[in-house]
């Protein structure tokens, strides 16, 4: 109805035209914008929204995966508070994230700087540094298992040769999580590649100008390189956070002997516990509640990261 009135007016009355144009442009942008993101919208509704709603519904029930779910209200959510393993899993995952994510950013940055060195055969080094990220996690986990083997692995032989203690990485609850943090660093090549792309995008003129002012390489890194890399650092933080919080496969392969999360729950990670509840203990409802809580918590975490990043992320166009 509004269209039939407004549309002729705009055509006929020039004075109102600019006003409408502004409105129309906004409108046009919305339509065009939505058209561009429409594939995502379709995928979101089909492959995410439905599963999430389903999960939400299941989280208020007791459900084995078969038969009829039994409504239990907030029981699953209340149960978390008293579930000691839930808290162990939260603690383990937080510990893992707090180490793996920041270390991951630093390692990736160091790799990227190294990959950016002007030596002729640098592409060989790049390939080597990137290689571990290509290996399937399944195979990498097995190799890692062999490398860290307390009595046979070459990593510990190396430590012994250096006169360092022979650490039981996989069997001592004190070190098992550290072993997972170290494993994560083999995948740093992925982020390093993105960092490298960002490094390459820094206009040479910036560095040249700073060099004329006599700035040292160290100062130029902090003053020029790092600020310009902040958008990709933010990307890597979010990536690391979301992948880290869902750590699963490597725990299952390396510490999954019987039961996953060994030794003594020291590698019991959140999603591992979630999976166990859903598929091993027939507690689909509880698993669903765990999933939603994880979802909300990570959203809050992400929001905090974004809020924090406002202080340091630098967009060139801004």
């Amino acid at each position: 109805m509004a269209d039939t009135i407004v549309l002729p007016n705009t055509i006929q009355k020039p004075p109102e035209r600019s006003g409408f144009n502004r409105f129309y442009r906004k409108h046009r942008n919305l339509i065009v914008g939505l058209l561009f993101i429409s594939p995502w919208i379709v995928g979101f509704v089909a492959f995410l929204l439905y599963p999430i709603l389903y999960t939400l519904q299941i989280s208020f029930t007791r459900y084995s995966g078969f038969g009829e779910p039994v409504p239990v209200g907030f029981e699953n959510y209340q149960h978390m508070l008293n579930d000691s393993v839930f808290w162990i899993a939260v603690g383990n995952t937080a510990f893992y994230l707090a180490l793996a994510v920041p270390i991951g950013v630093v390692v990736a940055m160091v790799l990227a700087l190294a990959m950016n060195q002007p030596v002729r055969e640098v592409s060989i080094y790049r390939a080597i540094l990137y290689l571990p990220s290509i290996l399937p996690l399944f195979a990498l986990s097995f190799v890692y298992l062999a490398l860290l083997h307390p009595s046979r692995g070459i990593f510990n032989q190396f430590l012994i040769n250096l006169g360092l203690p022979n650490i039981n990485w996989l069997g001592d609850p004190q070190y098992s999580k550290i072993a997972l943090v170290m494993l994560a660093q083999f995948g740093a090549g992925q982020a390093a590649l993105i960092f490298l792309a960002a490094l390459k995008g820094i206009p040479p003129s910036f560095h040249e100008a700073a060099m004329l002012d006599g700035a040292s390489a160290w100062r130029r890194f902090w003053g020029i390189t790092l600020p310009l890399m902040t958008p990709v650092i933010l990307y890597d933080l979010i990536l690391g956070l979301s992948l880290g919080i869902q750590i699963f496969t490597q725990v299952f392969i390396i510490f999954g002997s019987d039961p996953p999360g060994s030794p003594a729950n020291s590698t019991m990670m959140y999603v591992v516990y979630l999976y166990l509840n859903g598929f091993r203990y027939s507690q689909m409802g509880y698993a669903a509640a765990l999933a939603l809580v994880l979802f909300v918590v990570t959203l809050i975490l992400a929001m905090l990261v974004f809020r924090w990043s406002r202080g340091w992320v630098h967009y060139e166009g801004a």
Binding site: F142, L145, H149, P150, S151, R152, N166, N168, L170, G171, D172, I253, I254, G256, S257, D258, P263
Partner: peptide, 10 residues
């Protein structure tokens, strides 16, 4: 543990 643990690893 250091003696026997590794045999229990996959």
């Amino acid at each position: 543990q250091a003696f026997g643990g590794p045999t229990m690893l996959p």
